[in-house]
Design a protein around this nucleic acid. Structure first.
Length: 235
RNA sequence: CAGGAUUGUCAGCGC
């Protein structure tokens, strides 16, 4: 069974959803891991509706979801920005007694945020026993999408007040916020602090965000310079 | 102690 699940997972990750399903379909008995692997593949490749339908089928076959299953479902919900489906999954998570799980909490915050429901995202966020970097980053990303750079900066600040250290992904979210709001100086300053104050080596995502920021504010020469520099250092 | 599914990560466009 372990090997078959790994096979389903491999096809799913590669986007071979039909192949994944064919393997799955031939299993005489499908356990929660096989189901989760299949659902994960569908969720990951933009087939959120199918993923949720598979979950329904899983329940009809009386297979109990576990923590990982819920993570996969939340990914499906956010991929189709379905806030109401997220609420339904949320209710089941509570029923199963997983409400205080930090991993699921993070995923719920992220799912609500991606669905555009920041109120629910914050409600879950505040209900968690402790908040970690992932939940903060999800919220920052959501504020960034709404072009609310002030809230992004504020979150970045609060997070550190709470004793958490931002990581590379956090900075991607912050830089994305600067870009969307056209805040060049702030973006440059955060980019500098990335290495100088936080000791994090910038990755391609950070450089991409900077190129994007330069482009957004009309600094095309700087954007091109950065791209050329990147082309040199990456190859 | 190990283990087959495991949450936050660029931009734009279309629906």
């Amino acid at each position: 069974a372990a090997i078959i699940t790994a096979l389903i997972d491999m096809y799913g990750k590669c986007g071979g959803l039909e192949e994944a399903y064919m393997v799955f379909d031939k299993l005489p008995s499908r356990d929660v891991m096989a189901w989760s692997a299949l659902i994960s593949g569908y969720a990951e490749h933009g087939h959120g509706v199918e993923a949720l339908r598979l979950f329904k089928q899983m329940q009809q076959e009386a297979v109990e979801p576990n923590l990982v299953t819920f993570l996969c479902l939340l990914k499906a919900c956010s991929s189709i920005a379905a806030a109401n489906q997220t609420s339904l999954v949320h209710a089941q998570i509570i029923e199963c007694g997983y409400a205080l799980d930090i991993t699921l909490g993070n995923a719920l915050v992220d799912a609500y945020a991606k669905c555009g429901n920041l109120e629910h995202a914050y409600a879950v966020f505040h209900s968690l026993p402790s908040c970690d970097v992932m939940a903060w980053s999800s919220l920052m990303k959501a504020h960034s999408k709404e072009c609310d750079a002030q809230s992004v900066f504020q979150s970045f600040h609060c997070m550190q007040e709470a004793g958490l250290r931002p990581d590379g992904v956090t900075f991607v979210c912050v830089l994305s916020g600067c870009s969307r709001s056209g805040l060049l100086d702030e973006g440059c300053s955060y980019f500098k602090s990335l290495l100088e104050q936080h000791g994090i080596a910038p990755t391609l995502e950070h450089y991409n965000s900077m190129v994007d920021l330069f482009g957004h504010v009309g600094c095309f020469a700087e954007a091109e310079d950065l791209l050329e520099t990147l082309a040199f250092s990456c190859n």
